[in-house]
């Protein structure tokens, strides 16, 4: 029973030592699927509460970071009586291999699910270096 509970609960993101957040909010690590589809790598991330205006996808060198900012919708004048999940931002970082065509990454959000399509770059042809010897 406790195992299934852990699976469906959001995981809070861990902070590196010595790093503090500037926003007073909780940050969760979104669950993801990473699928290799032919010429594309597809990343799906569950980020409920996020839409196309509140998600940031940044690429710095080989680090792809997704960040979803949440504006909690709290029912006015209501008191929370049962709380099974926490609300907060989402962040997760992936290291890309150099095979990705970084210019053509596409991102869409639908019903709180972020979909990133990373096309693989055309593989550079392996160059064969001829070895010549002296006779």
């Amino acid at each position: 029973m406790t195992d299934t509970l852990k699976e469906v609960q959001k995981k809070e993101a861990e902070l590196e030592k010595g790093v503090e957040r500037t926003r007073e909010t909780r940050v969760f690590t979104p669950a993801v699927d990473i699928i290799e589809k032919g010429n594309d790598i597809v990343i799906l991330a569950d980020m409920p509460g996020v839409d196309e205006n509140s998600v940031d996808v940044t690429l710095e060198k080989d680090l792809l970071t997704i960040y979803g900012k949440i504006e909690p919708e709290i029912p006015a004048n209501h008191k929370l009586v049962i709380s099974e999940y926490g609300i907060g931002d989402y962040q997760r970082t992936f290291t890309l291999t150099s095979e990705i065509d970084k210019e053509h990454i596409r991102a869409t959000v639908s019903d709180g699910v972020l979909r990133l399509v990373l096309p693989k770059a055309e593989k550079e042809k392996t160059r064969k270096i001829p070895v010549t010897g002296h006779a």
Binding site: T4, L80, I82, G112
Partner: peptide
């Protein structure tokens, strides 16, 4: 218990004679 199963996690808000249930179910 007032809730029957683990998924999806819910939050329940009450204000006198009105209750609001919120739940995160992305991709449904």
């Amino acid at each position: 218990s007032p809730v029957s199963s683990e998924y999806p996690a819910v939050n329940v808000w009450v204000n006198g004679d009105n209750a609001v249930i919120t739940t995160e179910i992305p991709g449904i």
